[in-house]
């Protein structure tokens, strides 16, 4: 019992000490494009959340699948109901860390190349991924940009035969977010 209280105390202390180095946004832009000769599909989510701990390099990202907006109503419906099954799997997350945190100086304005490594969960399937990106420090904010590819097959997203040529095997994802200090 006593041990537990000590552990709890240590955890709380760690939590509080890290608090000051946390950056946050609720306006992260996550866009994806599926480009095939048959059809061009594009969707954007402007309400992704992200928390970055500059002390440890830990980052958590989350988007609601239902908040991806398409131009065509039917595409949005198929995306939610047939492919992503958004009622069953309402969100996509990335929980990971920056692997080269030593290369970033959060006290100095500038753009830094970083690599994030961690667990991406889409459609209820978790995959270990490594993503290159940039952090831009300036004006009291940390801007995060990243481009990477997601293969629907890796996340057990079934594309039926009839539309197989309409949907790319590799979906290009773009992340664009501006994180501000938390609790200020």
């Amino acid at each position: 019992m006593k041990n537990r209280i000590v552990i709890l105390g240590v955890l709380l202390a760690l939590g509080f000490s890290a608090q000051a180095q946390k950056y946050f946004t609720r306006d992260a832009r996550v866009q994806f494009n599926s480009d095939t000769p048959v059809e061009k599909i594009e969707a954007v989510n402007k309400s992704g959340t992200s928390v970055l701990d500059t002390q440890t390099g830990r980052m958590d990202w989350k988007v609601l699948i239902k908040n991806f907006l398409f131009e065509k109503a039917l595409m949005q419906e198929h995306f939610n109901e047939n492919y992503m099954e958004s009622t069953k799997y309402p969100n996509a997350t990335f929980k990971g860390s920056i692997t080269n945190l030593q290369d970033v100086n959060f006290a100095k304005d500038g753009t830094y190349k970083v690599t994030a490594k961690g667990a991406m969960t889409i459609h209820g399937v978790e995959q270990e991924i490594t993503v290159p990106g940039t952090l831009t420090v300036g004006g009291g904010a940390v801007k995060v940009k990243a481009d990477f590819v997601v293969k629907p097959a890796d996340y057990k997203i079934d594309i039926p035969g009839v539309v197989r040529d309409n949907i790319a095997k590799e979906i290009a994802v773009t992340i664009d977010a501006s994180l501000k200090p938390m609790g200020k």
Binding site: S47, G48, K62, V63, L64, K66, N67, N91
Partner: peptide
């Protein structure tokens, strides 16, 4: 708007 669920905040789209 259309309720998209909760992601820290409850989110309404459109």
């Amino acid at each position: 708007g259309e309720c998209a669920g909760i992601n820290l905040d409850v989110q309404l789209a459109r």
